[in-house]
Nucleic acid binder design. Structure first.
Lengths: 213, 213
DNA sequence: CAATAGCCAAATGTATCCAAAATCTTCCAG
DNA sequence: CTGGAAGATTTTGGATACATTTGGCTATTG
């Protein structure tokens, strides 16, 4: 059975926002989307509300829907939240990670280091971090973390484009430290490395305010 | 101008979930709600999606909507998140609180101590904490914290009902410490007191698993 | 007597149509 | 030439009607 119309719309639009096809500030017309998916406007409205709930788009009554934008302050705040939430989530996840998953994490660290195109880097980096959380039970904490990742994705891409892949030497070291903590089941080490990883990214990001113009 | 139909529905249902009129697990039929608000089912569906985005209700395709339930584990997790997010939010808020607001916070600490019925206690306690955050800029952090408060409200009520107001002696002391930090503009003191406050509540709650049956 | 298949009622999902609001265009006045 | 106001166009909001799905009830059968 094919999933419902609204969920197909949600999935597709979410993907397009995350991969940069749709950029922050871009308007989403209900009619256009309905036409594109061969559906009427009701399921589209449903889908837009869901995306709004995920923070990916912003709706204004009697006006329309736009892909959400973050100010530099909001992005800074998002990273402060990540610093506090992700080590917690990782500590919930580590005890439940399987050998297979840890192997994949290890491969990802290597592939990230060897990646030479920006989209690939972003995709692998995202997979590494989110996979490292996959041992945690589903719940609010995982939802929140994923939501922060989604709403900041565009600015992460903008930053990597700006500074280039070459400058991510420290990132690779941090990934190795996190992985080492995971491998040894040491949530404290992994958590501290992760916190530092996010913290450094936050500070670096705040030195490139031009991303938010 | 009266606000739109969906927002009226959202406001009313949110209020009823928070004040306990609607309890976790209770079903919400679109037709009933539409009839009650003198609207059609479309605005109601819109409203339900928004409430789902707030985490207050859970929707299942082709089945219906229910007031969200938290397991004991999820509630514990929610409090762990509060411990990490609320001190951060408070530190953003403190520099911007006005004299009037601080006066109100001070009055609230006194009124909470003198409150004689459970609903009043819950209302004042909620106002105290959320008001202490009102100096912070709007954004994801404030939204997340409010969302956690909303989804755990029912279990807070259940706990207070179980243990009675008499047992909240320590709570009052903690409120005074938080207030003292705020009055002196000391975000570190206020934050530590707040973290302990939430942490103690989390531990106490986890000793009453019968709330989650 | 228990179990399963099929039918029926109730609730949700979708499409179409109309109304209301916002934006954009155009035209006029200063 | 600029600013603003009024009308036209576009887009969203809401209601009614119809389709689809679900869950339970009943009846039939092993």
């Amino acid at each position: 059975m094919a999933s419902s119309a609204p969920s197909r719309v949600v999935e597709t639009l979410r993907e397009e926002i995350l991969n940069g096809t749709l950029v922050p500030g871009e308007r989403l017309r209900q009619e256009d989307i309905a036409l594109r998916f061969g559906a009427s406007r009701q399921p589209v409205r449903d889908a837009l509300r869901q995306l709004e709930g995920d923070g990916l788009i912003t709706m204004v009554a009697n006006a329309g829907a736009w892909v959400s934008k973050l100010s530099e302050r909001e992005c800074y705040e998002a990273y402060q939240m990540r610093e506090r939430l992700e080590p917690l989530l990782l500590s919930h996840s580590i005890p439940n990670l399987t050998g297979q998953q840890i192997k994949r994490l290890s491969d990802l660290v290597r592939d990230i280091e060897n990646s030479h195109d920006i989209e690939q880097f972003l995709r692998l980096d995202r997979e590494f971090h989110l996979l490292s959380y996959s041992g945690a039970e589903p719940g609010m904490l995982r939802e929140f973390v994923e939501r922060i990742w989604n709403t900041t994705q565009h600015y992460r891409r903008a930053y990597v484009k700006l500074s280039g892949l070459a400058s991510s030497e420290v990132t690779h070291l941090e990934h190795k430290l996190i992985l080492d903590g995971i491998v040894h089941g040491d949530a404290v080490q992994a958590g501290q490395a992760l916190e530092g990883h996010i913290r450094r990214t936050r500070i670096t990001l705040s030195q490139h305010k031009e991303i938010f113009s």
